[in-house]
């Protein structure tokens, strides 16, 4: 049933999962620590809970798309993430893929009655 709220939530989550990687890569063109990144994404209209964001940051770092280092800021230890060279190439490639998918989706929507 398409209007089943649980199913809809799962579909939305699947859609967001892929986009979230893109959003994080785009956002980390500027260095951020976890909390500031979450706030930044939230301010841009993308709510992400910590349970999703932090494991994602670690996964992207293990895939060498991100680099991180511990810094002391405002008297507090913070792990600051930034895009690596590989991550930047991935960001550009994903962006192009996104544009192409968006175009294809628009075409499909237009041609479907």
């Amino acid at each position: 049933m398409p209007d089943d709220p649980d199913r809809l939530t799962k579909l939305t989550m699947e859609l967001r999962r892929g986009l979230l990687v893109m959003a994080v890569l785009e956002a980390l063109v500027q260095p951020h620590y976890g909390y500031s990144l979450r706030r930044f994404l939230q301010e841009q209209g993308l709510e992400v809970d910590e349970g999703t964001l932090y494991p994602l940051l670690r996964r992207l770092e293990s895939q060498t798309l991100l680099e991180s280092e511990w810094q002391v800021q405002e008297g507090r230890k913070r792990r600051v993430y930034r895009l690596s060279k590989t991550g930047d190439s991935a960001r550009v490639a994903m962006n192009m893929e996104w544009q192409s998918l968006n175009k294809a989706l628009a075409n499909i929507t237009e041609t479907t009655p």
């Binding site: 620590y33 976890g34 909390y35 500031s36 979450r38 910590e50 932090y54 670690r58 511990w70 507090r76 230890k77 913070r78 792990r79």
Partner: peptide
């Protein structure tokens, strides 16, 4: 392997919040 690292980051996030 990740215990201290994750815990430090979590504590920092909670303090910021």
């Amino acid at each position: 392997s990740v215990r201290n690292d994750v815990a430090d980051e979590l504590l920092s996030d909670l303090q910021d919040e």
